[in-house]
Design a protein around this nucleic acid. Structure first.
Lengths: 145, 145
DNA sequence: GATTGACTTAAAGTCCACTTTAAGTTGTAA
DNA sequence: TTACAACTTAAAGTGGACTTTAAGTCAATC
């Protein structure tokens, strides 16, 4: 049963749909050496379930802020074997550090956005007599800046 | 005392430093009509504390995912007065919705990144006999995909 | 056997948010 | 009064991550 499953392959179009990218993007990733699909007798790419997992993993890394260049580096190191594990680990930890920093900032941005929405809602409801400036409002609720 | 405070002004260079942008970026924002600073007798821009608060607020919105185009729209509506409050509120709420969606995705990306780091750390420590593939590891800890 | 749709390539184009360049003006300090 | 830093403008350039174009190949269906 698993023997049968392992033979499943996808064309670039199918693969692109599965992973949520466009076919040109898949080709672009291949040019950047993030992927290297198999080729059939007519030189057409085909992809396996392993490729699906792999690109999904890359997209997770990308989603935490890694650039294409950093992904390339990671992929290069990976191809060089276990000796580069410290390099890869360092890269991932740095990525996580940068991510956490941005994450904190973004939470603050969200807080201000929420405050502004509340302020507008209050203004809409309270009609005319509610004329408190947004800056004062922020200070009052303890979110100055 | 507040009378004195109110007269504080900043040159574009000082202002840029305060808000954490470059002077050319400030000029760019002005071209995009997000800002409009005062001018002195020699046609040089000067900025007030109100401008500082305003650009900081814009940067909070930007930080939640609003594009320059969306900020321009917001600013345009703002200039049109209270009649556009519903428009602004709708824009901010849409921004928040999009933000929350991305936020959830990004949390998942982070989880996978963390898992990968743990997996490498385990591999580094456990040395040779720890040969569990990452996919299996994810499944085992309940973070498949 | 012709049409269709999905594939192939290399190269050029796009979008966003700035950044840099080039040429010139102004206020202060030596 | 000359040097210098900080400002002014319009326009061109940059970087990242794709996307589009153009010209062609191939396999399956009518």
């Amino acid at each position: 049963m698993q023997e049968i499953e392992k033979k499943v392959t996808y064309s670039i179009g199918q693969f692109a749909t599965i992973v949520g990218l466009s076919a040109p993007t898949i080709r672009y990733y291949e040019r950047e050496k993030l992927l290297n699909p198999h080729r059939d007798h007519a030189d057409r790419r085909y992809f396996t379930k392993t490729d699906v997992s792999w690109v999904k993993f890359l997209l997770h890394l990308k989603g935490t802020g890694m650039s294409i260049q950093e992904l390339k580096l990671y992929v290069k190191w990976r191809a060089q074997g276990d000796a580069t594990i410290p390099n890869r680990l360092a890269l991932l930890k740095e990525t996580r550090n940068d991510f956490m920093e941005k994450y904190r900032q973004v939470q603050h941005h969200l807080q201000i956005l929420n405050d502004k929405i509340s302020w507008y809602e209050k203004k809409e409801t309270g009609a005319s007599h509610t004329e408190e400036p947004f800056g004062d409002y922020l200070t009052r609720i303890g979110h100055s800046e």
